[in-house]
């Protein structure tokens, strides 16, 4: 698989943080509370490695919001949370009476989907915007299950030479701190295209 250089990863992290800034602004406005989002780390991994890494970091039970995108580069964007973090996050955002259930109700699933949607749109949108390229997005989908099932079943491309961009992401609300992962699953060609876009935008520097 294609590897991004350290500089490219740093550059991508910066660009995504711009998107995160947008996402946190719109989330803050929606819930009437400051929501901070940040991407401290970007990694490129193989899909198998990514699954193992995510399992090790968040456990095997995850909640995910997926969005497929196509255009100058293409793939699936997934926002992953440990199951209990997704509950915490949604309930902190919607400020409803705490539902004493250890799973999301259907309304809550929808809300989480929207949160994921806002974040994914903002991140990918900011990339498209900066690269001055058009991306076309599909509607976000909610899914929940084991790490492997969620990641594998969501891949739209069938090539095995997929790479994963794994971005750790932190959410901070007034009382809640939750971490999740943003992953971009792309095949080699798409990764290559992204790499080229990065080089083009930053010139010879990356």
């Amino acid at each position: 698989m294609i590897e991004l250089s350290e500089l490219q990863k740093d550059a991508l992290g910066e660009l995504l943080n711009i998107g995160m800034g947008r996402a946190s602004a719109s989330l803050s406005e929606m819930v009437g509370e400051e929501v901070e989002l940040s991407v401290p780390k970007v990694d490129t991994l193989s899909q198998e490695e990514a699954i193992e890494r995510i399992k090790g970091l968040v456990g095997d039970n995850i909640t995910a919001v997926k969005e497929s995108f196509k255009g100058a580069f293409w793939g699936d964007a997934l926002l992953l949370f440990p199951e209990e973090h997704s509950l915490e996050l949604v309930r902190a955002l919607i400020k409803d009476d705490t539902l004493p259930l250890d799973m999301l109700s259907e309304m809550e699933q929808e809300a989480l989907t929207e949160v994921g949607n806002i974040i994914l749109n903002a991140c990918l949108g900011s990339l498209a915007n900066i690269f001055q390229e058009n991306l076309e997005f599909a509607l976000p989908q909610y899914s929940q299950g084991s790490c492997e099932d969620v990641i594998k079943s969501n891949t739209s491309s069938e090539t095995s030479s997929e790479g994963v961009l794994l971005l750790q992401m932190n959410f901070a609300l007034q009382k809640t701190k939750v971490s999740g992962y943003l992953t971009l699953i792309m095949d080699v060609a798409s990764m290559h295209a992204l790499s080229k876009q990065l080089s083009k935008y930053f010139g010879g520097a990356v």
Binding site: L93, I118, L135
Partner: peptide
């Protein structure tokens, strides 16, 4: 606007909106 200008899809949940 995002859909028309940036090709983005959105979901507006009942809970948040």
């Amino acid at each position: 606007d995002d859909a028309l200008c940036h090709g983005m899809a959105s979901v507006l949940s009942q809970k948040l909106n």
